[in-house]
Nucleic acid binder design. Structure first.
Lengths: 177, 177
DNA sequence: GCATGAAACGGAGTAGCCTCCGTTTCTATA
DNA sequence: TATAGAAACGGAGGCTACTCCGTTTCATGC
């Protein structure tokens, strides 16, 4: 386990980098990032020896948030509505997912996303409104439809297809096991 | 036409870069290159706005020398022997060729190589020891056999195959036209 | 609570990147 | 040959990258 201050600084660096990348692109000054994070440049380099490693950490962080959000949505919504809300955030996150998969060595990213989907499904099953389904299948289905359609231009259709998937999940609800 | 001093400096930069890349890799200090070329850093950047453009110029230069060498060899050898000598230098130049093709926008590189080969063939034809042949075909044949064989390890076989190509060229020698 | 050393921190220092603009050098023309 | 202005030159300057090591902070065992 890393020391508490190290964890704090690491987190601060990631957050500062997130903002800086957004504003200036991935070529932004690392010294600026360190300054924003209120950390010495040496500390930045200790945590992230290369620019690429920092970029990757930012992607991982954002993806983590995306996955966590499925749990957050479940706190105050019915499972089917949480599923719908979460799936509707995916199109905007698609570039992020692609980048994260690209930089991530061994596709932990996909496992995380699968877990997020599975959580939504499981809650629906527990509530008796969804039938059992495999998280990875549903994830691939969602990503597939988003890649296939040139979204933004046609958000409506994407939403309809998400609803179709939700109806598919409902279908098995009557069954036992 | 560029000014004479500009041409001189450009050449000096390429030569300095050639040496520096050899010694330190493509990440070598550009200020060092400028210093070696006895030129200001500003001049380097005017001629080569990016590092990549300098790298490419070095490749182009080396390839140019390779192609020129076919003419040089023809000065004091019989055409078939010049062909053999030139072809035998190709294996060592293969990485260069690959790199040059990669960085070169529109494959001028290949045209240059073709011309070098064609020159060798034409001289053989003029001397009555080769039959006519297409430079590009022969070039592809040579490159193909060098790519196909893991050379260095088996120089002998490469040389034999070069001789085979030369014999092929001889075959048509009796014909007219 | 305190001592201890392992871990992390910070930032000065060195070196390289690239730009900008005043100065110098060519060369075309008369 | 003299000259004008277009073209090229040079290098200071501002900025960033990355390293290195003396200093500080944390967490563990007593």
């Amino acid at each position: 386990m890393a020391r508490a201050d190290a964890q704090r600084n690491r987190q601060a660096l990631i957050e500062a980098a997130e903002v800086a990348f957004e504003a200036d692109g991935f070529g932004t000054s690392l010294e600026g990032v360190a300054r924003t994070a209120r950390v010495g440049i040496g500390t930045l380099y200790r945590h992230f020896p290369t620019r690429a490693s920092l970029v990757q950490a930012v992607f991982a962080e954002q993806l983590h948030e995306l996955c966590d959000s499925s749990a957050v949505l479940l706190q105050d919504r019915r499972p089917d509505e949480a599923f719908r809300a979460w799936a509707r955030t995916l199109p905007a996150a698609l570039p992020l997912i692609a980048a994260a998969v690209e930089t991530d060595p061994n596709h932990l990213v996909v496992d995380q996303l699968e877990a997020a989907v599975q959580r939504l499904i499981d809650r629906g099953v527990a509530a008796g409104i969804f039938g059992q389904a495999n998280g990875r299948d549903v994830l691939l289905l969602l990503c597939g439809l988003m890649i296939a359609l040139p979204l933004e231009q046609d958000r409506r259709r994407v939403w309809d297809m998400i609803d179709l998937v939700i109806d598919g999940l409902r279908f098995g609800a009557g069954r036992t096991g």
